[in-house]
């Protein structure tokens, strides 16, 4: 039996159809959650007030976003996906990995494509960091190496060690 998409506990008793941006979205709800959200329907009240529901569609839409999306945040910079939706600005390059499926969809809408087809980038030379920046990066690489070793991901650890060696050669 399908569970309510809001509380995830009670079996769903109602299927609510909502039109959001000309797309029909369906929600399976239990009676209690549906009532809590202010939706008025069924024989008890005798009224099905469609305009009330449609008027609050954006609230519904946000409330019923899958839970992992609500708490989805970038592993590197901590930016919440919900915050990105408000500002339209990502926090760091890793956000593209953290939100990859969502962004692929968004990119297809903005650009008409979801994959880069322009010039590649082979990577530049090693820039000359300030002492503070070099030591910050050294610490971060050391921590990442420890984490990789703990996870027994030795290939990643070797890559990180090369990066650390390169940093030390240049700034050591």
């Amino acid at each position: 039996m399908k569970l309510c998409e809001d509380c995830h506990k009670t079996p769903a008793a109602v299927f609510l159809k909502l039109a959001v941006n000309n797309k029909v979205t369906g929600l399976h709800l239990c009676q209690a959650c549906a009532a809590k959200k202010g939706a008025v329907y069924g024989f008890e009240s005798g009224v099905f007030n469609a305009s009330d529901i449609v008027g609050n569609v954006s609230d519904y839409f946000n409330d019923f976003l899958p839970r992992e999306r609500k708490t989805l945040a970038c592993a590197a910079c901590g930016l919440k996906y919900s915050r990105f939706k408000e500002t339209g600005r990502l926090g760091c390059a890793q956000c593209y990995k953290s939100f990859e499926p969502q962004l692929a969809e968004l990119m297809a809408r903005i650009h008409g494509f979801a994959r880069h087809a322009g010039r590649g980038y082979a990577g530049g030379g090693a820039p000359e960091f300030s002492r503070a920046e070099a030591s910050r990066r050294g610490e971060a690489l050391n921590a990442a190496i420890r984490a990789a070793v703990d996870k027994e991901d030795f290939a990643a650890a070797a890559r990180l060690r090369d990066a650390l060696r390169e940093l030390e050669n240049r700034h050591g």
């Binding site: 339209g88 600005r89 990502l90 390059a93 593209y96 990995k97 990859e100 962004l103 692929a104 968004l106 990119m107 903005i110 650009h111 494509f113 979801a114 994959r115 880069h116 087809a117 322009g118 590649g120 980038y121 990577g123 530049g124 030379g125 090693a126 820039p127």
Partner: peptide
């Protein structure tokens, strides 16, 4: 001379996805 943020799928990575690629 620098090191840009770049990924195969989304190209050059930018703060706003509208500028990426």
């Amino acid at each position: 001379n620098l090191r840009y943020s770049f990924a195969e799928q989304f190209g050059f990575l930018t703060a706003c996805p509208a500028n990426a690629g």
